[in-house]
Design a protein around this nucleic acid. Sequence first.
DNA 1: TTGTTCCATAACCAAATGGTAATATCAAAT
DNA 2: ATTTGATATTACCATTTGGTTATGGAACAA
Lengths: 123, 123
Amino acid sequence: MEQVGYATRPRNLDAVFAALADPTRRAILSRLAIGEASVNVIAAPFEMSQPAVSKHLRVLERAGLIERDIDKQRRPSRLKAEPLAAAVTWLEEFKEFWTSSFNQLDGLLEELKIAEKREPENE
Amino acid sequence: MEQVGYATRPRNLDAVFAALADPTRRAILSRLAIGEASVNVIAAPFEMSQPAVSKHLRVLERAGLIERDIDKQRRPSRLKAEPLAAAVTWLEEFKEFWTSSFNQLDGLLEELKIAEKREPENE
DNA sequence: TTGTTCCATAACCAAATGGTAATATCAAAT
DNA sequence: ATTTGATATTACCATTTGGTTATGGAACAA
């Protein structure tokens, strides 16, 4: 396994998460997980025009999630790893941070604050 | 403290990823990972108006990423776990699927295609 | 009472998004 | 040389997004 974006915090998290926010684009990624595919092959299952799919591909490309080759007239796309790894890293680090003892500490502080400030009237 | 949140579908990946696509909202989540906070406390570090932050909080709430309570005049927000877990699950399942043997198969097919460049493709 | 704090809401705006249809480009096939 | 096929590009449209200022209202403070 090669190293992926561990040291540097990639600043394109915005674009990666935004790209993942569309179900069509997630479906495209799933399709590409099976293997590279041309625009028309990608577009076939969707009930939208080819330019619409091309736009989605451009969003995925600018997020770094796919790369596009040139094969005769076709422009096969294929997945790229690093941005997804960055998203996973952000989410996992955040989850770990959040579920750490800070959480329980916060609960304790909250109870202390309530007890210290005023008698509970109705909870 | 009374509950004010809505019942949210924990599988709304569109809304979750869209919410995560904004750096301000990710920063708000990081702030809330330390502990619950009122709107003004959340808004203080940002160079934007309070209504702008309230809008971001509403996006996070509709994505199910936070819940909002009522404490006197304050509306403290706190994190919710399930949607983030859903996002992590999607990404990890996708990553696993993608890095499975399909990938190596695709690589093999790619080499084969290069080797037999003259052969037309099927769809 | 009067004023202040905290937050929401409304109206507005510019820019981005997601789609369309029509056309252009360009390599491949005939 | 002409046609076909795959994709990009353009022009256009409606909706959403992310921000603003102004205002309203409930709860607290004096």
